[in-house]
Amino acid sequence: MSSAPTPTLGSLLSGLRARNGWTLKQMSDQCGIPVSTLSKVEHDRLTLTYDKLQQLSRRLGMRMSELFAEEEDEGPQPVTARRSIGDHAHAVRVQTPNYDYYYLHTELRRKRMIPVSAVVSAKSVAEFGPLVRHAGEEFFYVVRGRIAVHTDFYDPVVLDVGQSMYIDSTMGHAYLVADGCDEAEVIGVMSSGDDELMQSLLDLHEEQRGRSAATTPKAVRDRAPR
């Protein structure tokens, strides 16, 4: 007896197109993404960038989080023996003033954890801004450089390559580049019983990008590429 098909971003878009009775060309006209790109996504040969996912969700009237994960169906999920091999080339990249995120394995739906690779760039709490908080727990492991972890209830801790930390994500936290380093890189996993975890993370990214845009001098914004 075969198991149920594993939900992917491609199957989500294919199902959405079928429910609306659209051809690939009609869906392309609706969302502004080329037919060839949509075809590759539907066949799970390509993922979409963060900006393209934003464009898709906005034009099709969907929430961004729906493109990263689906709500669980009632009842236990069947064993699918699924697997996914990831790298930065196939990740969804999200750049904020404090981190350069690569969300991995975004083609898989209904994940119980959110794997991410991130380059840390902020060097002080003043540069970072307010500590971030979101549902769930998270684990991060340093793969390059050194980071200083600031939290609500503990003194700052410096982690070197090979060291890691597991924290309650509802506690305010910030990962900074430690003194003596120009940049650092971590890999991590975030998990929560809250179905809205991905949406919470996306909202945080937009807040950080919005704060950055608001504090960028007008002359610099005018010179920025369009």
Rank of each mutant, 00 (worst) to 15 (best):
A4F: 06
S11W: 00
L12G: 02
L13F: 03
S14Y: 07
L16W: 12
R17G: 00
R17Q: 01
R19K: 13
N20A: 14
T23V: 05
T23I: 07
L24T: 03
S28R: 10
I33C: 02
I33T: 04
I33K: 01
I33F: 01
K40R: 14
V41L: 10
E42P: 04
H43Q: 14
D44T: 11
D44K: 10
D44I: 12
L53E: 03
Q55Y: 05
L56T: 09
L56R: 08
R59H: 13
R59S: 11
R63N: 11
S65T: 04
L67C: 06
F68I: 02
F68R: 02
A69E: 11
E70K: 13
E72S: 12
Q77P: 03
V79E: 13
R82Q: 10
I85N: 06
H90C: 10
R93F: 07
R93E: 14
R93W: 03
V94K: 04
P97F: 03
P97E: 00
P97N: 01
D100Y: 05
H105I: 05
H105S: 08
K111V: 08
M113D: 01
A118T: 09
V120A: 04
V120E: 01
S121C: 03
A122H: 01
V125H: 00
G129F: 03
H134T: 05
A135Q: 09
R144S: 15
R146C: 04
V149H: 09
D152M: 10
F153V: 15
D155M: 12
V158I: 14
L159R: 09
M165N: 05
T170V: 12
H173S: 08
H173C: 10
A174L: 09
V177S: 03
V177P: 04
D179K: 03
A184C: 07
I187W: 07
S191F: 13
S191W: 08
D195R: 09
D195N: 13
M198Q: 12
S200E: 15
L201C: 13
L201F: 13
H205K: 06
R209C: 12
G210I: 04
R211L: 09
A214R: 11
T216L: 06
T216K: 01
P217H: 06
K218C: 10
K218E: 15
K218Y: 11
R221H: 09
R223Q: 14
